[in-house]
Design a protein around this nucleic acid. Structure first.
Lengths: 124, 124
DNA sequence: GTGATAATGATAACTCGATATCATGTCAAT
DNA sequence: ATTGACATGATATCGAGTTATCATTATCAC
């Protein structure tokens, strides 16, 4: 169980080359540069599998109808969502912990921050 | 243009009584306590309308496939999502703007912050 | 190389939130 | 009370995203 296929390698390559989380649809298009005949089903199958093996992780962004995926090896970071082109970028800003500013009893394990606005391509 | 209906009043009442953002489906069920025959289409029509009149606003939360709605009279705030009981709380913390910390060209209009952890009830 | 079988690709089918349709009901100005 | 425009409710429809089906292909242990 677990054969290596060129399709899966293509999908891995796509995530190594990407600076931002990707939708399944984007993965499909990008990976077709390596394997033109790649099909949708294979993309979904492999995204699921690569998450199970810990190579990828899911990213859930507000307002996005679909789940995005990114390499699981990335450091803690947040996301910038361009309201014009709808792409999502990784950004390094982080507001830090909030536990001290919350009412007693609230314990923060994790936080998600999403910035919305215009990316450099769309500002121009 | 603009008649008052008991359906719309019921939907208003639901939001006044709610301490958290609601899905259209939740609004439907809750408002049916006032108007049992209330239909889905009416909920969607009125959510849209109430947003246009400025009474409600939309809230987008990660992991939610649908748009949520809340009263527009609430001050700027963020949300705390309890991972145990799955409830969403309003919290007053705010990380402020980030534009200065971003690469040039990124322009921030808005941000969403979601904290995940345990609420007072679940910490005990 | 061979063969068992895992993986793929094309496509149909499904999910589910949201919208469109349209006959019926209701609000409110008169 | 009348009436016409607006709102409603049941249902069909839409559409994006995802999954299921299944015949075909490709991987890899041997």
């Amino acid at each position: 169980m677990g054969r290596n296929t060129e399709q899966r390698d293509a999908i891995r390559a796509v995530f190594e080359a990407s600076a931002r989380p990707l939708k399944p649809e984007e993965v499909l298009v990008l990976a077709q540069a390596f394997v033109p005949a790649l099909g949708v089903a294979t993309v979904y199958r492999n995204l699921k599998r690569l998450c199970e093996t810990g190579e990828l992780r899911t990213v859930e962004l507000p307002g996005h109808r679909t789940t995005l995926y990114e390499s699981a090896q990335l450091d803690h970071h947040h996301h910038f969502h361009c309201q014009d082109c709808d792409r999502v970028f990784d950004v390094d800003v982080c507001p830090g912990s909030f536990t001290s500013q919350l009412p007693p009893g609230f314990q923060v394990n994790r936080h998600d921050l999403v910035l919305y606005g215009a990316c450099p391509d769309c500002t121009a």
